[in-house]
């Protein structure tokens, strides 16, 4: 009996290795960051860092859901931008109007994700091409909504969600935790979530065993849209405006992939968790901001982030050392 428990524990450790590694990287980076920050480890520094990190964390969670099914969503950044622009129109006014606005924005995100899913799964197109094309459409709509940066948002709600609870805990982290508990945990434990994992691990085997892979993948794409929309909503709360910026949308897509890789989610599908991607996102943001505390020219930031991404994706190559037969190269 005791022996079984030890094995169970080691199995759990092996499964969570990527997440734990991401957590470790994040802690180390954050300690370096705060200890060199001129203001030190204060509630203000943590609040700013968590607000920035949470934006990317939502988009990275969205990307994780799709990557688990062995797909990729290159439109997450554009859904993020689109919902940001939409929120700058709708999330305003009295309490009820604001509530309807939030629901409409989240519903739009869900719809965008569902469209991606429908085209990829039922239309049987490749995820890369599909999401690049739908990303163009979403960006176009965002540009229609906000040809110029502007708009406004319910500032009470915005301040409440980007401020601090009890003067210490950043509210955005609490929202992130709530979203994990409401969206990710139920999904990953449901039949659909398992189907998404199974489809990513081996679509053929899952299909043969009667796993509802289509519904699982569809749910993953749709929820990805929803999570990206939560991110877009938060961007609006954070900036008080809507801005259809092509470069920023693209950057979020790119960073979400970096965060997913750092978070130990396998790009070949079937392995990893959104929790890992969250820590990956927080770690990536902290690494990017390290330049500021060490007083580098901000011009170097894109290069620095690109190099981190390049190193992160190259780490996967270490698996090659474990290859026993050269034919395993071609999986």
């Amino acid at each position: 009996m005791k022996d079984w428990r030890v094995k169970d524990w080691r199995y759990w450790l092996a499964e969570q290795r990527g997440t734990l590694l991401a957590f470790g990287i994040f802690i180390v980076m954050f300690v370096i960051y705060t200890s060199n920050h001129p203001a030190g480890f204060t509630a203000n520094v943590v609040q700013t860092a968590s607000n920035k990190g949470v934006l990317l964390a939502f988009v990275a969670m969205a990307q994780t859901l799709v990557v688990i099914t062995a797909g990729i969503d290159l439109s997450v950044g554009m859904i993020f931008t689109l919902t940001n622009c939409l929120a700058s129109w709708l999330v305003i006014g009295t309490g009820i109007e604001t509530a309807f606005g939030v629901i409409a924005v989240l519903g739009t995100g869900l719809l965008c994700g569902a469209i991606n899913g429908a085209i990829v799964i039922y239309g049987r197109l490749q995820p890369i091409v599909t999401t690049i094309a739908t990303g163009a459409v979403y960006f176009g709509i965002a540009l229609l909504l906000r040809p110029f940066p502007g708009g406004s948002v319910n500032e009470d709600l915005a301040d409440a969600l980007t401020g601090r609870l009890f003067g210490v805990v950043p509210a955005s982290l609490v929202v992130l935790l709530a979203v994990v508990l409401v969206v990710w945990v139920p999904f990953s434990r449901s039949v659909l979530g398992r189907a998404a994992y199974a489809a990513g691990s081996s679509e053929m085997a899952a299909y043969m065993s009667g796993v509802p892979i289509r519904r699982g993948k569809f749910a993953a794409y749709a929820l990805a849209g929803l999570l990206a929309a939560i991110g877009g909503l938060f961007l609006t709360f954070f900036t008080y405006t809507g801005d259809a910026a092509y470069a920023s949308g693209n950057a979020y897509t790119l960073f979400s992939i970096a965060a997913v890789v750092l978070g130990g989610v396998s790009l070949f599908g079937g392995k990893g968790s959104a929790i890992g991607a969250i820590f990956g996102a927080l770690a990536f943001r902290t690494i990017g901001d390290l330049l500021f505390v060490f007083d580098f020219d901000p011009l170097w930031q894109p290069l620095f982030q690109g190099v981190i991404l390049l190193i992160a994706v190259s780490l996967g190559a270490f698996a090659l050392f474990r290859v026993r037969n050269r034919l395993e190269w071609f999986l």
Binding site: I257, V261, L299, Q301, L303, V307, S314
Partner: peptide, 23 residues
């Protein structure tokens, strides 16, 4: 040689190239 998915490595080199040009 490193067997990284092309979609990922090319995105990464794109980001590095952008960073170099910005600098």
């Amino acid at each position: 040689y490193l067997r990284i998915p092309s979609m990922i490595i090319t995105l990464a080199t794109n980001a590095v190239a952008q960073g170099l040009m910005v600098v």
